[in-house]
Simulated scan of single mutants.
Amino acid sequence: MIPFNKPFLTGKETFYIEDAVKSGKISGNGKYTQLCQKFFEERYHFKKCLLTTSCTDALEMAAILLNIKEDDEVIMPSYTFVSTANAFVLRGAKIIFADSRADHPNIDETRIEALITDKTKAIVVVHYAGVACEMDTIMDIAKRHNLFVVEDAAQAIDNFYIGKNGSQPLGSIGHLSAFSFHETKNIISGEGGMLAINDPQFCDRAEILWEKGTNRSAFFKGEVDKYGWVDVGSSFLPSEIIAAFLWAQLENLDKIQDQRKMHWNNYKEKLADWAKSNNILLPFVPEYSTNNAHMFYLICESEDQRSAIIGKLKAENIMAVFHYISLHESAFYKDKHDGRFLENTQKFTDRLLRLPLYYELDTEVVVNQFLQFESAKAN
């Protein structure tokens, strides 16, 4: 059986977890939390980083920091995971869904401005498959309309946008950004996430939200002589056990990335002719983005063709899966959507197929199964 995903262990995870337990400080914001946060701040030049128990929590922190309130409008793609929207819906916002680009599931930057009203508070971009959205255009729109930008960088660790300011790490461009370390991501901690703060105005308050609405962090840094309840907040801070696991992964980030990129490139090279003969598109990476090899996907000719491929691979014990069901057509939000048909979003909902991609994968086995298909047409 070739699973869709298999978590990679570096071998140091349990060593660091044991060290964290023996330290007597396992509740969070200890040695390993600080090591991980410092790693991201120094390597990617984020202004401030705070580990969270999930990317969902990081997004919820972002919504609170932006003071999202009832009837505020937030623009985001429909082709994304539900957490992107839930974080803002929980604050009372109305979600205005934008279509994807024709050539990539990312938000179509050319369609954002027409959706802005006097109620719009923020634009949330999702770097799908780790590939950058067209951030120069998006940040220009936000600046002209006095809007905040949140980067949902759940899939985008160690990837870069190449624009007018040179090469910039994804997650460092918007006012706030959220990362995921779920077991399906490149770098993992089982469950886990991180809020990256690029606008200094949010730094102090973010620590308070992170510490359940208290100024405990300031107390431990000697900035106040006692701490108490000073704002809203929640239990966003993960335990040291999660941070210790993550630290073992971060020490091996380059090794993990190199291996994933090798698999991704192998797929791209060896499936090119097969895909062309079956009217299937391979992943598109625009010139303004690097590639972190988070995901390798196909855009099938039809939903029936996708189902046929899934079935053929499953018969050979290879798991390939589709991805998001568009949020604007979900049971929860359909009657709240304004009725616009999002053509490209629907295309990716119906036709995108993800192939197995993980550190220990033998891509040759998967590729050989594809090449044995005389045709990928549904029958």
Rank of each mutant, 00 (worst) to 15 (best):
Glu13Gln: 06
Thr14Phe: 05
Ile17Trp: 04
Ala20Ser: 06
Ser23Tyr: 01
Ile26Gly: 11
Tyr32Ile: 04
Tyr44Asn: 06
His45Gln: 11
Leu59Glu: 02
Glu60Asp: 14
Ala62Gln: 04
Ile68Lys: 10
Phe81Tyr: 02
Val89Leu: 15
Lys94Ala: 00
Ala98Cys: 00
Arg101Gln: 08
Ala102Pro: 01
Ala102His: 03
Pro105Leu: 12
Ile107Thr: 02
Thr110Asn: 04
Lys121Ser: 05
Phe148His: 14
Glu151Lys: 01
Gln155Ser: 15
Ser167Phe: 01
Ser167Arg: 02
Gln168Glu: 06
Phe179Leu: 11
Ser180Tyr: 03
His182Asp: 13
Thr184Gly: 14
Lys185Phe: 09
Ser189Trp: 04
Leu209Val: 14
Trp210Gln: 10
Glu211Leu: 09
Lys212Asp: 10
Lys212Ile: 10
Arg216Trp: 12
Lys221Arg: 12
Gly222His: 10
Val232Asn: 13
Ser235Ala: 12
Ser239Asn: 11
Ala248Met: 05
Gln249Cys: 07
Leu250Ala: 06
Lys261Ile: 15
Met262Trp: 15
Asn266Gln: 09
Lys268Thr: 15
Leu271Tyr: 09
Leu271Thr: 07
Ala272Glu: 15
Asp273Phe: 12
Asp273Val: 14
Ala275Trp: 11
Asn278Glu: 08
Ile280Phe: 12
Glu287Arg: 03
Ile299Phe: 04
Cys300Gln: 05
Glu303Arg: 10
Ala308Tyr: 09
Ile318Ser: 13
Tyr324Phe: 08
Tyr324Leu: 08
Phe332Asn: 15
Lys336Asp: 04
Gly339Asp: 02
Phe348Trp: 03
Leu352Cys: 09
Tyr358Cys: 05
Leu361Ile: 05
Glu374Ala: 07
